[in-house]
Design a protein around this nucleic acid. Structure first.
Length: 154
DNA sequence: GCCAACGTTGGC
DNA sequence: GCCAACGTTGGC
């Protein structure tokens, strides 16, 4: 199943990802998002890499799941900004999949473009009040966005 | 910087 | 188990 993952590019951008090639998607502190990683994301699943809180926000490229969810080490590190005092070795609470870089889009697909693209009306990302940082995407939505991203600039 | 929407916390 | 208060997300 295709997915969308959000990141603030000031923190971790598509260019950072392109350099690093693979990264553990740590720091997610929302149970619904964790459950998606733990229960539903499968190795090989395609991912839209989304820049949030940026100007403009939008889909910057593609990734794929490269390893199943494992406990999130940042939750147990008191020096990490995502440290969670309630997490223990016995019950680490938080988990993270590993994701691999696939490509940076030739055309950054802006949120505004998504909003006006036919067929994406029901996309979770575009619904009012939606702020989940990991969300499932339908095959049709994924294909439509890849087409926009791989096309030449408008 | 604003603020709507949403998740979490904690008193009761 | 309710719900008010609070913190966070994230577009604008």
């Amino acid at each position: 199943m295709p997915w969308l993952i959000k990141t603030e590019p000031d923190c971790y951008s598509i260019d950072d990802f392109a350099r690093e090639k693979k990264t553990r998607w740590t720091g997610v502190r929302n149970y619904q998002a964790r459950n998606f990683m733990r229960d539903s994301m499968k190795v090989g699943d395609p991912i839209l890499f989304y820049h949030s809180s940026s100007e403009p926000p939008g889909v910057a490229g593609l990734a794929r799941v490269s390893a199943a969810a494992d406990w999130d080490r940042t939750a147990l590190d008191p020096k990490d900004q995502h440290f969670d005092a309630k997490a223990t070795k016995e019950n680490p609470i938080w988990m993270a999949v590993e994701v691999a870089f696939v490509q940076k889009f030739a055309t950054f697909v802006e949120l505004g473009t998504l909003r006006t693209t036919k067929g994406l009306e029901k996309m979770a990302l575009l619904q009012r009040g939606q702020r989940l940082s990991i969300q499932p995407v339908t095959e049709a939505e994924f294909a439509a966005i890849v087409k926009l991203g791989e096309g030449k600039g408008r």
